Deep mutational scan, measured.
Amino acid sequence: SKIRITWGDKTWEWDGDDEEVWKRILEWARNLGDEELWRHVKEWVDK
């Protein structure tokens, strides 16, 4: 399956939905430097 994140007018996609993928997404969000996006992603990961 895919994980799709839409933020503003951008959309990103990742293949898979296991823990490793979420770790990569969390790292990606942090590297993007958008605090609010990172917080949202972290909330999803922690669920």
Score class of each variant (00 low, 15 high):
residue 7 W to P: 00
residue 9 D to L: 01
residue 47 K to W: 04
residue 7 W to N: 02
residue 4 R to C: 10
residue 31 N to M: 13
residue 45 V to N: 05
residue 14 W to V: 03
residue 47 K to G: 12
residue 33 G to Y: 06
residue 20 E to N: 13
residue 17 D to R: 08
residue 6 T to F: 11
residue 24 R to Y: 10
residue 36 E to P: 05
residue 8 G to Y: 15
residue 30 R to A: 13
residue 41 V to P: 00
residue 20 E to W: 11
residue 36 E to Y: 05
residue 20 E to D: 14
residue 17 D to L: 09
residue 29 A to M: 03
residue 28 W to V: 02
residue 40 H to P: 02
residue 26 L to K: 05
residue 28 W to F: 06
residue 27 E to H: 09
residue 18 D to S: 15
residue 47 K to P: 03
residue 31 N to H: 11
residue 39 R to Q: 13
residue 15 D to N: 13
residue 16 G to F: 14
residue 23 K to C: 04
residue 37 L to A: 04
residue 44 W to S: 02
residue 26 L to E: 05
residue 15 D to I: 11
residue 21 V to M: 05
residue 47 K to R: 08
residue 2 K to L: 08
residue 40 H to K: 14
residue 9 D to F: 01
residue 32 L to K: 09
residue 43 E to K: 06
residue 34 D to Q: 03
residue 29 A to F: 05
residue 35 E to D: 13
residue 25 I to R: 00
residue 31 N to A: 15
residue 14 W to I: 04
residue 45 V to M: 15
residue 22 W to A: 03
residue 23 K to E: 09
residue 18 D to W: 15
residue 37 L to C: 04
residue 39 R to K: 14
residue 18 D to K: 07
residue 43 E to W: 08
residue 37 L to V: 05
residue 30 R to C: 06
residue 14 W to H: 01
residue 7 W to G: 00
residue 2 K to C: 05
residue 37 L to T: 02
residue 19 E to L: 13
residue 11 T to A: 12
residue 36 E to L: 08
residue 39 R to L: 12
residue 37 L to P: 00
residue 24 R to G: 08
residue 22 W to Y: 14
residue 7 W to M: 05
residue 4 R to V: 14
residue 39 R to M: 09
residue 36 E to G: 04
residue 17 D to P: 11
residue 42 K to Q: 13
residue 6 T to I: 12
residue 2 K to M: 08
residue 7 W to E: 01
residue 25 I to V: 14
residue 13 E to F: 05
residue 18 D to I: 14
residue 39 R to E: 10
residue 14 W to C: 02
residue 27 E to W: 06
residue 9 D to R: 01
residue 10 K to N: 10
residue 47 K to N: 11
residue 35 E to P: 14
residue 2 K to Q: 06
residue 45 V to Q: 10
residue 44 W to C: 03
residue 29 A to P: 00
residue 9 D to A: 03
residue 40 H to G: 13
residue 40 H to L: 13
residue 4 R to F: 13
residue 28 W to E: 01
residue 9 D to K: 02
residue 13 E to T: 08
residue 36 E to R: 04
residue 12 W to I: 05
residue 13 E to M: 04
residue 27 E to N: 09
residue 20 E to T: 14
residue 5 I to E: 00
residue 32 L to I: 14
residue 42 K to N: 10
residue 43 E to H: 09
residue 43 E to Q: 11
residue 30 R to S: 12
residue 47 K to Q: 14
residue 37 L to S: 01
residue 22 W to K: 07
residue 10 K to F: 09
residue 31 N to Y: 11
residue 38 W to P: 01
residue 42 K to F: 08
residue 33 G to S: 07
residue 31 N to V: 11
residue 7 W to D: 01
residue 10 K to Q: 12
residue 12 W to E: 04
residue 39 R to S: 10
residue 7 W to A: 03
residue 8 G to N: 11
residue 22 W to T: 04
residue 4 R to Y: 14
residue 18 D to C: 03
residue 38 W to Y: 15
residue 36 E to Q: 07
residue 2 K to H: 09
residue 14 W to G: 03
residue 8 G to E: 09
residue 21 V to D: 02
residue 31 N to E: 14
residue 18 D to N: 15
residue 10 K to I: 11
residue 6 T to S: 10
residue 15 D to C: 06
residue 32 L to R: 08
residue 46 D to T: 09
residue 47 K to T: 11
residue 20 E to C: 06
residue 24 R to D: 06
residue 12 W to D: 01
residue 23 K to H: 10
residue 47 K to C: 04
residue 10 K to E: 11
residue 10 K to R: 12
residue 38 W to F: 15
residue 17 D to I: 10
residue 16 G to A: 15
residue 17 D to H: 10
residue 32 L to V: 15
residue 8 G to L: 10
residue 38 W to S: 05
residue 5 I to Q: 00
residue 6 T to L: 09
residue 21 V to C: 03
residue 25 I to T: 01
residue 11 T to D: 05
residue 42 K to E: 08
residue 46 D to N: 07
residue 35 E to R: 03
residue 15 D to Q: 13
residue 9 D to M: 01
residue 2 K to E: 02
residue 31 N to S: 14
residue 15 D to R: 03
residue 20 E to Q: 14
residue 47 K to H: 14
residue 34 D to S: 06
residue 21 V to G: 04
residue 46 D to L: 06
